[in-house]
Nucleic acid binder design. Structure first.
Lengths: 227, 227
DNA sequence: CTTCTTGTATGTTGTATATCATAAAAAGTA
DNA sequence: TACTTTTTATGATATACAACATACAAGAAG
């Protein structure tokens, strides 16, 4: 089992010395989460960093009016759950599997210890955090300044860029409920449905259940850019 | 001059070995910016990391409708301008001095080089980036989910926490224009003025020009919490 | 001292979008 | 099968806020 994990987490594993690999090997563990199962929640102390091996995970926050907003979606093979530990804080977000998920757990204490002497691993996290911070700042602007159509268009394009498309080159390979799509684009479910069906009648996309196929990407880009 | 800089940037200077200090000492430079002068702008390649020695700097982004939003305000002595370099991106924000500012410039190439072997410095940046990412995520929620009164109340409390108060224990020690206050709280200038004067007539704050004195902090917290 | 500019203040109107309501379709469940 | 629950869909209403307009105060510049 552990060897399977190791084969998946190569992007950090390869940064380690043989000694460090041995040290970490003993500490690795593994957990499966069922659909809609909570992985961690706001206020908890972060102990492990996680690597999603398969399935889908969403990281979200709950606002004052109980509406929830998806901050990022984790796809295999990505790491998550380390930010709070590095900031010496409890978690400020919630993580939930929205498809059955297999997750490798890596104790942050070990990571912290290795980082004391392994600068390449440190550089990995610096790069990761710096990239995520840029994305988060960009999202702040998009979510607050763009109008509904712009936000939904941008979200659809974002999903294409992040998750890619199926063999036809146009259908998003991630299937989200309308509610999650709304939580990602910061709008109510009703408006996500409404706006998506506008896009359909304007021949920008075609939907089939939760499948979204992009028809006119240029037009979507224009809508996203103008807000 | 350089020795003055060194005395100010102790939080990273102290993490360096004697050799590293000597190496960096030669590369340090220094620049003063006048009020409203641009320090860097979106699209530029990041070459230096900066340390604000005195004055005030705002980091902001411009949205699709040309409205600008302040992402963070830098106070002495804080570092900024390193995120984009670490993410291998051009700047995605603009930085502008809104009070005459003295700024130390530290070439990122040098930092990058030192980080290859100095894990303590790497850990400094990891901590910094992780903290900023948490703040950015929290702001996303506040700015999108709270209503005007909640956003302004939260912004005032945020300014108190970040910049502190004067001798009376209640007057914010940062003086922002109404326009900047609005850009920070993500609203139009007119609404910032309007809402602030509501707060005044409700005896939550007292204003005198750009001075804001907090009268009823508990009430402000309640408004911020409920959105 | 005027004149011009910039920041502050407040009222009015229009519109984007949340909220509420209802219903059909789809997906589980017995 | 029938029955419940969830998801999707669409219309009507309410409201928060942006946009616009106007006025005044305070500096800055002539």
């Amino acid at each position: 089992m552990k060897d399977v994990i190791v084969s998946h987490i190569s992007s950090i594993w390869n940064l380690l010395s043989a000694d460090e690999q041995n040290y970490l090997y003993d500490q690795l563990s593994y957990h499966t989460y069922r659909k809609n199962e909570l992985i961690y929640s706001e206020g908890m102390q972060p102990e492990n960093m996680m690597c999603l091996l398969s399935g889908q995970v969403k990281i979200y926050k709950v606002g004052p009016n109980t509406r929830f907003q998806i901050m990022r979606v984790i796809r295999p093979v990505q790491y998550f759950g380390y930010r709070a530990y590095f900031a010496h804080e409890p978690y400020v977000t919630n993580a939930c599997a929205f498809e059955n998920a297999k997750i490798a757990l890596i104790p942050m204490k070990c990571i912290d210890h290795i980082i004391e002497t392994n600068c390449r691993l440190a550089a990995f996290f610096i790069h990761q955090l710096a990239t995520d911070l840029g994305i988060s700042d960009q999202r702040s602007i998009t979510l607050t300044q763009s109008h509904i159509r712009g936000r939904l268009a941008e979200t659809i394009l974002f999903l294409k860029k992040t998750y890619g498309v199926e063999a036809d080159g146009a259908t998003l390979s991630i299937y989200l409920s309308r509610e999650d799509l709304a939580a990602l684009a910061n709008m109510t479910t009703a408006n996500a449905i409404r706006t998506l069906s506008s896009f359909t009648s304007e021949n920008l996309v075609v939907t089939d259940g939760r499948k979204i196929k992009i028809i006119d990407e240029t037009a979507l880009q224009r809508i996203a850019r103008l807000g």
